[in-house]
Design a binder for these strands. Structure first.
Length: 161
DNA sequence: GTCACCTTAGAAG
DNA sequence: CTTCTAAGGTGAC
């Protein structure tokens, strides 16, 4: 890929870009930040620098509980059709609003695929910008969160959800 | 083929 | 209220 550091008040995120756009985003590694000398990179997207700036700007706003605004192109080609429809729907959820897994399932035309939705959210490669944290369990329960439940709580709190 | 997963509605005890 | 079950999509084994 193409790891790029994105500085935010919450730490340094790492973004990955393909020639098509943003393909992944990682939360700050709290324990060991010691990671990569960055293996040799081959592809350098033509708009890399521009995308990095857009990603940082969008991330800062999203972390502050605001609409991310202009986003760099997202390359979600790694996901299945089902996952992409879920992720697309999540991006349409405004800050401060939340949906339950069942509502998301219904919204994409698969009312019985509630668990699959959970699976799709967990497989989301771009947390925060693709707000998987705005999906709660049916009775207001938080449900789980692979990136760490604390992020889910922190983000929702800032959005006053 | 089987199992586990960021789930949930419904039926039974 | 608690416990159990079935059901959807997907990837690991």
């Amino acid at each position: 890929m193409n790891p790029s550091h994105i500085k935010t008040p919450d730490g340094i995120f790492t973004a990955f870009f393909s020639e098509r756009g943003l393909v992944g985003l990682e939360f700050p590694r709290r324990s060991k930040s010691a990671k990569k000398p960055v293996p040799v990179q081959r592809d350098a997207p033509p708009h890399l620098k521009e995308w990095q700036l857009l990603t940082q700007a969008a991330l800062l706003k999203a972390l502050a509980g605001q609409r991310p605004g202009k986003l760099p192109p997202l390359d979600l080609s790694a996901g299945t059709a089902f996952q992409q429809s879920v992720w697309a729907l999540l991006q349409s959820i405004p800050p401060g609003h939340t949906l339950s897994y069942s509502e998301v399932a219904r919204a994409i035309g698969r009312p019985k695929a509630v668990r699959a939705v959970g699976q799709a959210c967990g497989a989301n490669p771009i947390p925060v910008l693709v707000p998987c944290h705005r999906v709660l369990a049916a009775h207001g329960g938080l449900g789980g969160f692979s990136g760490g439940l604390e992020w889910k709580i922190k983000l929702l709190g800032r959005e006053k959800a």
